[in-house]
Each structure stands twice: as C-alpha cells, then as structure tokens.
Amino acid sequence: MLELRLVQGSLLKKVLEAIKDLVNDANFDCSATGFSLQAMDSSHVALVALLLRNEGFEHYRCDRNISMGMNLGNMNKMLKCAGNDDIITLKADDGSDTVTFMFESPNQDKIADFEMKLMDIDSEHLGIPEAEYHAIVRMPSAEFARICKDLSSIGDTVVISVTKEGVKFSTKGDIGTANIVCRQNTTVDKPEEATVIEMKEPVSLTFALRYMNSFAKATPLSHTVTISLSSELPVVVEYKIEDMGYVRFYLAPKIEE
C-alpha cells in the first residue's frame, strides 16, 4: 500500500514540467525514506535525479519498496488537471498496475481522482559517486535560465569557465560570439539573489545549450541553482526543493575541439 499526500501539490506539477521533455518513461521509486527517480535521456548524455523526502509529505505511507514505471507525458497530462492550490495524493495498492492521483481543492469542495496505467520499464541505474568539485557556483535560477536562453539564440554550445574573476558563460555561432561574466555578489538584499562562487581550481567545460535550456525548466522549483563543475566529471545542475529534496541534472561535457 502506497499513499503519499502532498499539500503543496503544485510542487509535483512543477517537477513534471521540469523533467518531462528530457525523459519519456521513468521508474518512480518509493521507499520508507522518500519518493525518488533516476532517469537518463534517450541519448545517455543527461540524467535527472529527483528526491522528495518523506518528511515533506503531510501523510507518507509506503509499506514496501516499490518501483512504479510511468510515462512522464501521460503523468503530466494528469497532473495538469490539478489546480495549483490543490492537495495531491498518490495512491497505489500492492501489485496493482495502476496509480491513482487524487486532487483536493483547498476548501475540500472538489475532489477528483485520476487513475493512470503503470508500465514495465527496465530498471537501470547509474552509480553516481560522491565527488569533490573544482568549482561550485550558486546563483539566482532565473538569471541562469536567462543566460542559457540568450546564448542559445547565438550558438549551440556554452563554455562555462570559473576563474577567480567569476563565472563566464560563452558561446559562438554563425552570427558572432557572446560572453556573459557573473561575478561573486553577496551584497544583496535577499540571500537568494546572491551569486556565490567557491573555487578550488579554475575549470572550463563545454556543454550543449539544448540540455541546459531543458534543465532551466526547473526554475519555478527554486530561487537558486547550484552548478558544480569538475574537469573530470559531468556538470551537476541542482535545484533544491525547499524542505523536501532536490532535482539534479547531470550533463556530460563536449570534448574540446
């Protein structure tokens, strides 16, 4: 028996909006500690890892570990039918091949349930070791989204370079080049508006902007984004979900030409 009641149902709606274009089908893994997902895009270049911890749910019952295969496009269709203020409850019986999404309006005057068929998906996970990163940049998520969008009108790839001067996002294309430098800035009114750069050593890596723009669809989940870079590792672009967990995107770099 599985029953997860999320008062802030809009969170789940935002999670689906963030990941549905990157991954078509995925297993949601449910255990006593939380609701999670790990899935790669079809070309094995990018990976999304989601964690929603049990304590973030108003009611969390998961009697045994289960893995529920879902088509994210179909799941998104169902979640779009929930209002932004609705409470969302996920329910599944042991051995069932369906999951039920229940939507309750805040004043309880409308209750809807949508039952979705589950699917069998080969469960393949990647082991992601804990790593030390050369540089970690924390910045406003809207700023990062803006930069990726702006650069993608000029070029297809972004070079992200961290030096003691700041973090530089560069691209080049047929019409020209663009460089955007963000310096550390902690003298802001609100902590979420700060740009904080922790650098152990300079690092410069090239990534496909198409994926970065896809990751930026998670912007509504968090005011800030954390970008962790190391020359030997895929970049990690993390959106923390307040009091609950995170959505992390991993992206393999392009090889410098």
Binding site: S43, P234, P253
Partner: peptide
Amino acid sequence: AENQKSLTAYFDWY
C-alpha cells in the same frame, strides 16, 4: 554529435 561524451563514460551501471 561525435564530440559529445556519454554519461556512461563517467558512471557505472548497477
């Protein structure tokens, strides 16, 4: 693209 690395070059399946 040929110069795009795969995640599986960095992480192992389990």
